[in-house]
């Protein structure tokens, strides 16, 4: 009689343990499903953050930036950099563009500059890319009445990153 009762207790305990293990396995699977569903979005977000950091760094770099000014890009320097193959993999982004905020967006060449709005600095021809825009002041040297001065217009620095 006592042995039967103990067997029943052991059975009860084993069922309880099985239920507990099942519960934790299910809860774990639920948690993993939630975590991994956002993995792709997180990777894209990280790329976006990286592109924004690069945009901020570019605006202050000697290749792009004006002297002693934040959020300022010297377009005379940028047009000289356009299409240089040495810079294609230098910044590890899909593309870099500088655009004036105007109604038109004519692409700049050395011949058409500064009567144009868009400078495509580098382009790695990635198909699935997204831009991170940063407002910048686009400055260049201009000549008027025989005097040279800095002419600045509002524009955007667009750093493209790859969508995953």
């Amino acid at each position: 009689m006592v042995g039967k009762k103990s067997q029943l207790r052991i059975k009860q305990m084993s069922f309880m343990l099985l239920a507990a293990v099942l519960f934790f396995v299910l809860a774990g699977m639920f948690f993993l499903m939630f975590s991994y569903s956002n993995l792709k979005n997180k990777a894209t977000d990280l790329n976006k953050q990286q592109a924004l950091t690069i945009a901020l760094r570019l605006a202050g770099s000697s290749e792009f930036g004006c002297v002693d000014q934040a959020y300022c890009i010297d377009t005379d320097k940028v047009i000289a950099l356009k299409g240089r193959s040495a810079y294609l993999d230098f910044w590890d982004v899909s593309a870099i563009e500088v655009i004036k905020l105007e109604n038109r967006s004519r692409e700049c060449t050395l011949a058409s500059y500064p009567d144009c709005e868009l400078i495509k600095v580098i382009d790695n021809n990635d198909t699935n890319k997204i831009a991170v825009p940063l407002y910048v002041s686009l400055c260049r040297k201009a000549l008027e009445y025989g005097n040279v001065y800095d002419k600045c217009e509002l524009g955007q620095l667009l750093v493209y990153y790859k969508r995953i």
Partner: peptide
């Protein structure tokens, strides 16, 4: 941050 960035950049416009 976008508007802050706009204000900083626009102040330099000639």
């Amino acid at each position: 941050p976008e508007i802050e960035n706009f204000l900083e950049a626009s102040m330099l416009t000639t």
